[in-house]
Design a protein around this nucleic acid. Structure first.
Lengths: 360, 360
DNA sequence: GGCTGTGTTGATAACGTTAACCGCAGAATG
DNA sequence: CATTCTGCGGTTAACGTTATCAACACAGCC
């Protein structure tokens, strides 16, 4: 069909599969204006006459146009996304935090990339790299490792704000939002001692994790204050290991009369073991767990627990991150954002510590 | 090598705040090759001599280069992200699903945008729009509403694969992964009837929700089969409402002797009410709940429950979505992906239904 | 008539990446 | 020696958006 001698640059094969939806160019054509005018209408702020704006809005609605975030981000170097790294979403504590973070992000028009590190430093590192590639505007992280990941330092160099959630982060400049781990643990152990217990066992997960470490500190303080000998067993990761340990310790003469569990999972494992051993709470063993459980009031013996404000923790951390993002964007506007928030814990007295708990 | 009289295009003013990290151009300069060569090394596949590749890789490592996903996505129209909409992350069932989805996505090099609809159709709609703007490659959704969101139809037009999780989706072409809701409920209610109960109560959340609706169907089938009169109470959203209802029904003469709860939240509310009313399970009231709870075995009377394979549900749905994504990209490669998966439920017998449960 | 605003719109150049060509050595072939 | 490969590498043009600057129309003012 091409006739005479002009060079025809090989007809495109089949219109080249454009992007899914209509683009700003389509809207501009539809409304009979320049693309810049459409951009102005979409982003607001600049001068556009009411009549033109109406025409453009109508075209947008007619075509069902949505701005392409990829292109926006490429121009503006900021993704309207934040990242969140948690060890495990199936843990209700982290799930609640994630819920709160995601909610706050939504009010800012941001979305949240949530990933789980599965308590593996390597996974965590990879995920941070993937988020960096997506050019997130900020990162919230419940750090899994002890040291500081090299990737985090790279994020830092890229001036991406960083907030540690529930734990602290050394070696990089980051904000953090934590709870009164030591104080909460101390209060709980003191309470057990006040009930007359002299041998108070303390068991939990990995002592290298910041939160566990802090809680152990609180436990030691309370024990030392009462002149009692601390007895700690950590690195309990499975239910069987926990049961084996408890069986051994509880068969000794002068066996422990009280138990303080350092974290959620261990609390549940201990409860399972106690049921298997047919011990009665609090008669055979008084117990307090760090981190409350939704069903704690409904257990055989309702469980006394140190409650952490998970929702507030997530919200505060997210708010802090957005403060930092705003501050780093409009450089030096307003005061420097807060970089450390410590939230209080609450000792919820139920039956398992030995208190008479209210019947309703 | 351009030296003398060539045109020099006006020196840029002050380097113009570039993107956070180094770009492909920096790598190319560092390695002394063209950017295209770097791109080839990064994406693999094409001809690059080993020597050049080594040089480029070294430069990449030296500079700490990460490809800008925004630019990639803008070119290729595909974001290496999928979306996940759940009603509530604090619900352990959905949290577990999310965990599984996120894990499968990771193995494909994708990240997951997780949002909660908070059971609001409007929130859900907005979130779908935000995800559309981010040009996600596919969407997993636990639909909250009854009808089909207009936004979903738009996604569909944009040829974005869609999979409904735990529920079905009418009016759009979508895959779905669900569990044997009706069958599981029927089995549970039959079990209660087999224990001799004639008046089996059925309570739950919104009956318009697909899952609840299906479970009610199962309940009705079992009751009809036994020639018993079904008694259902739905729209119970709060704990007080549930307690009020149960108090009223349990004070009637010839009161119900068995209870079947249709969903997680209602199960918990019922357990709270039962404790408040000082009823004994299963003596005063036998009970089975749909959806198992982690602490169910540890309750006063261990709770018999219909367990759903939450992990498997999430995994299957994610796998189905990635099948659809692959299929829509390499058009017509391989067989059409599965679009319907139904997973079995399992009745976990513990004490609350009246069975003697194993002590350990 | 020349100015200076002021309110509105348009043209163009990036942003970082990849797809589609183009070109160039050197080897293999005629 | 002239051709055709073939393996590598470079050039250029998008992708959809926004910042920047220029242009225009119209008013008010000397």
């Amino acid at each position: 069909m091409t006739q005479e001698g002009t060079f025809v640059p090989a007809p495109r094969k089949a219109a080249k599969r454009r992007q899914s939806g209509p683009t700003i160019t389509d809207v501009a054509r539809e409304a009979g204006v320049a693309i810049m005018t459409v951009s102005r209408v979409v982003n607001g702020g600049s001068y556009v006459s009411p009549a033109t704006e109406k025409r453009v809005r109508a075209a947008i609605r007619r075509l069902g146009y949505t701005p392409n975030e990829a292109a926006r981000m490429l121009k503006g170097q900021r993704a309207r996304m934040i990242g969140l790294v948690v060890p495990d979403l199936a843990d209700s504590f982290f799930a609640t935090c994630a819920n709160a973070v995601q909610e706050v992000a939504g009010t800012h028009g941001y979305m949240t990339l949530i990933v789980t590190s599965e308590r593996s430093v390597e996974t965590e590192s990879n995920e941070i790299a993937m988020m960096a590639a997506r050019r997130i505007a900020g990162l919230l992280i419940v750090p899994t490792g002890v040291g500081t990941d090299k990737r985090l330092r790279e994020l830092q160099q890229a001036e991406i704000p960083l907030v540690a959630l529930d734990r602290t982060l050394d070696g990089v400049e980051a904000g953090h939002v934590i709870v009164e781990n030591a104080g909460g643990a101390e209060e709980a152990v003191r309470h057990l001692i006040a009930h007359g217990h002299r041998r108070v066992l303390c068991i939990g997960y990995d002592a290298k994790v910041y939160t566990i470490h802090q809680r152990i500190l609180g436990y030691r303080r309370a024990m030392k204050e009462a002149g009692l000998k601390p007895e700690m067993w950590t690195n309990l990761t499975t239910a069987p290991a926990t049961e084996t340990l408890l069986r051994r310790l509880m068969s000794e003469p002068g066996r422990p009369t009280a138990l303080f569990t350092l974290n959620n999972v261990t609390t549940i494992h201990a409860l399972q073991a106690i049921r298997a051993m047919q011990l009665r709470l609090p008669a055979d063993l008084a117990m307090i767990g760090f981190d409350d459980l939704e069903l704690a009031p409904l257990l055989d013996t309702p469980l006394t627990a140190v409650r952490q404000p998970a929702l507030e923790l997530g919200r505060s951390a997210a708010r802090m991150l957005f403060d930092m993002i705003r501050h780093s964007r409009d450089v030096g506007t307003g005061s420097k954002p807060e970089t450390r928030i410590v939230l209080p814990t609450e000792l919820i007295l139920r039956g398992s510590c030995g208190c008479n708990h209210p019947s309703s």
